[in-house]
């Protein structure tokens, strides 16, 4: 089963690694932004130019990544937060028939991010890491960040 793992760098990547025990047994592929940390991730991986460095180069890198996603489709998409890339990847992968799981960062305690709010409609599972937030917005909660 092909599992695509989407995450930005820093805490989002760390949060994905904390869930390694769940996904490492499958045929996994990281989709993340170019960074020193991303260089250390095992292949296969798709690296995108961070949009905060250049929006145009981000879109070009996204366009280059599309054939990889289309011709090697994920069965499951899991994101711990990748901002702009989530906005493109969730609708696309849902359209391609992937099971989509979004896990909001534990950094968001009282409200979800703008990109999370947008992609929620394209998620089979929308999970947050704080019970109070889950109650407040009607999201799923399956355990805290700490």
């Amino acid at each position: 089963m092909r599992v695509d793992l989407l995450c930005s760098w820093g805490g989002h990547l760390q949060e994905m690694m904390e869930l390694r025990g769940a996904w490492e047994a499958y045929d996994c592929r990281f989709v993340t932004y170019e960074s020193v940390r991303a260089d250390g991730l095992e292949e296969p991986k798709i690296l995108l130019v961070p949009p905060w460095k250049s929006r145009i180069r981000f879109l070009i890198s996204l366009a280059k990544a599309l054939p990889k996603v289309l011709f090697d489709r994920p069965d499951v998409l899991i994101s711990t937060g990748m901002g702009h890339a989530d906005i493109f990847m969730f609708p696309l992968c849902r359209f391609l028939g992937a099971y989509t799981i979004y896990i909001e960062s534990g950094a968001n305690i009282t409200e979800i991010s703008g990109s999370a709010a947008f992609i929620r409609r394209f998620c089979d599972r929308f999970i947050v890491r704080w019970e109070s937030l889950a109650d407040q917005i009607g999201a799923e909660y399956h355990g805290g960040i700490f």
């Binding site: 089963m1 599992v3 904390e18 869930l19 390694r20 025990g21 769940a22 996904w23 499958y26 069965d75 499951v76 899991i78 099971y99 799981i101 896990i103 599972r125 999970i127 890491r129 399956h142 355990g143 805290g144 960040i145 700490f146």
Partner: peptide, 21 residues
């Protein structure tokens, strides 16, 4: 002690999806 609740939930979910596939 790391909170592994979500990891365990996700693990069970992926097993279920894999079995269906």
């Amino acid at each position: 002690r790391r909170n592994r609740d979500l990891e365990l939930f996700l693990s069970a979910l992926l097993e279920e999806l894999s079995a269906k596939k």
